[in-house]
Design a protein around this nucleic acid. Sequence first.
DNA 1: CGGCGATGCGCACACTGTACGCAAGAGAGA
DNA 2: TCTCTCTTGCGTACAGTGTGCGCATCGCCG
Lengths: 249, 249
Amino acid sequence: MSPQEQAETGPQTPVQSVWTRPRAGREQPALSRDQIVAEALRLLDSDGIDALSMRKLGTRLGAGATSLYRHVANKDELIELAIDEIYGEIEIPRSTDPATWRADATGCAQSLRATMLRHPWIASVLGEMGMSYLGPNAMRLAEFLLALFTRAGLPTAEADQAASTLVAYVTGMATSEAAYLNVLARSGHTEQQYVESLWPTAEQAAESYPHLREGYAEQRGKDPRTARDENFQYGLDRVLDGLETRIIH
Amino acid sequence: MSPQEQAETGPQTPVQSVWTRPRAGREQPALSRDQIVAEALRLLDSDGIDALSMRKLGTRLGAGATSLYRHVANKDELIELAIDEIYGEIEIPRSTDPATWRADATGCAQSLRATMLRHPWIASVLGEMGMSYLGPNAMRLAEFLLALFTRAGLPTAEADQAASTLVAYVTGMATSEAAYLNVLARSGHTEQQYVESLWPTAEQAAESYPHLREGYAEQRGKDPRTARDENFQYGLDRVLDGLETRIIH
DNA sequence: CGGCGATGCGCACACTGTACGCAAGAGAGA
DNA sequence: TCTCTCTTGCGTACAGTGTGCGCATCGCCG
């Protein structure tokens, strides 16, 4: 008797068998918050923010959708946990030398950007998650930057402003890059192909804007990936230049 | 015979009357794309991004939900139109004097921030809308900044990078502020009340981070609104300082 | 063994975006 | 004036969504 035939006896009189009867003991190490967040991250990274639904996540974990709510208050909280998880990927220099503040800040900023671009879906949620900066990993980053600028010689209040400035620049830049990577991913093309296919539209939109047209013309033919890297680095250097004027007297 | 009684005759034999019979001629000036975007903006500004649904929007316009699709391809496109609409609110200085580039950039940056904070829901969508910078008003802003830095003496390619840097800083700062304003609005309290109620949580989260604790202690008691304004201005000045090093030789 | 708290899950509800096809008005041509 | 096409509105329907509720079952503790 196959399992199918058993199933066909109908739901009124469910026939118990090895296949249908739940095993003694929880079969899985059960569900845990960490496991849920980890799987959510996998789903987000591979398919983007729209692909994350509680049902799909539950299925992936071999669980029902509503089981997740025993470990997580709601979807937003799950996303905040995921956000802090990726904050944890940011490399924070171990240096405590005041003289290397600029190199340390540069490394941290580059790592922050790289992390955001590795998980471009965060761009879609940073704007609605007001509390994400309270997560432990986010605080670790804030503490590091605050210490860095304090060591470099700024008073506490100004060190805070300097850190905000740096983070605002990096997240601003990375957010717009990530938004672009999101639509790029949806297009299914390579970055080269996508940029090429976008040219006519962009040129038409810039028709009556001479400076924009010239800017476009100048960028055409460049490798878009390295152009993005250079743009980021240019702005980062300028921001640090600006902060440096307040550090070196 | 009241309209209700007529209605109770059932859907099989609908009784026509003055009340139920459609009027001759389109009663309304019909639906237009501009009208739809305008009403969407009202809804977004008053109730936030989650409150925008096609059905609710249709009802507000006295139309069915799916009628909107005659004028707008889908919800995302509607939001892109709304975004560009608010880009149109940004004040762009008319000056063409190279000497005032810094004042002009400051004014434009402040207006960009103010506009984003007046419509905090854009923070929730900037990260998913990759094409919003192709809208006419967004291009107008880009053209202005490009012209500004070109006039100030930068070559085209660098003027482009300078404009990106400035915009990244402003949007980064405004995005995190807007995210905060979003949760503030949901809390239903004033900013003062909200900050006060957040203190214990924040202090607990910062427990093992000495610099953060000191930073918090220093900010306590300040008016949060003016503190935000000052933080923004500080970073803006630093970013412009950094760009200035490339302009003045 | 008895019960108790923690956990998983089926069901249900209210709601979402939007594809499809019908109907009715507007304008054009005969 | 009659018809024929094009545009516009909308009712219905489908395949989802987040999540509240209550039941069944587990491991553990007395």
